[in-house]
Amino acid sequence: MGKVIVVTSGKGGVGKTTSTAALGAALAQNGDKVVVVDFDVGLRNLDLVMGAERRVVYDLINVIQGEAKLAQALIRDKRLQSLYLLPASQTRDKDKLTAEGVEKVITALKSAFDWVICDSPAGIERGATLAMRHADAAIVVTNPEVSSVRDSDRIIGLLDSKTVKAEAGERVEKHLLLNRYDPNRAASGDMLNVDDVLEILSIPLLGIIPESPNILRASNIGSPVTLCDASSTTAQAYFNAARRLAGEAVPVTVPGERRSFFEKIFGRKAA
């Protein structure tokens, strides 16, 4: 039985989709069977970030409506044999995403894959609550910025109340993925640092992804950063996060934080 993960945040634009793609590809590179599922009906983008936008025939809504078999809608990644994508519908009505339909699809995916990674839409409406509904674990993607942290706090509240696990009196495992982190700005005091965010949200840290141009480059060419630029610090941060997700104890380091003795004493660069 596979593990169902929701990648969520509340706020839009914090990096849910890129993180879903990067983590999915990282896990699949271990040989695990992974499916990434786009829940953003009407505004799908996971297909684009994965570079599969021209191969979408059927989508999640088609499967829920019984117009296509699950196997027909799944798109196998061209680079990684064990990575699959289930796209969202771009044109159909969001209301077609039903609780029963989602449950059926997730149950089927769980029995066929090691990891079912659900890319949640932004917001706290139906799409977002259905994406988290059946999760065993959640990755809360947060930027070190006040509105993102506030929305993450709200999402954590929903994970603790509106999921199947929560309703059964169990807990959804929650992990913080701190994205777009700039260690230099955090060190100079102009950006919330790792400890600030951890103290406020008080959920365990899955990883810190540094702000980096690699991400834009990866989405430009339609390839998860862990595939197209595997040696970059960004990809390494995602690989480590994937290992922690799989239960390995990998110590968390702040990427890019290599300051000289002088800088450590006198703060940032003398500029």
Binding site: V149, R150, S188, L192, D196
Partner: peptide
């Protein structure tokens, strides 16, 4: 410079306690 991140932290702590 130090003030902006700590201001963010304090504002968030108060806001979230109420929310």
């Amino acid at each position: 410079k130090r003030a902006s991140a700590s201001a963010a932290r304090e504002r968030l702590q108060i806001l979230l306690a109420h929310e």
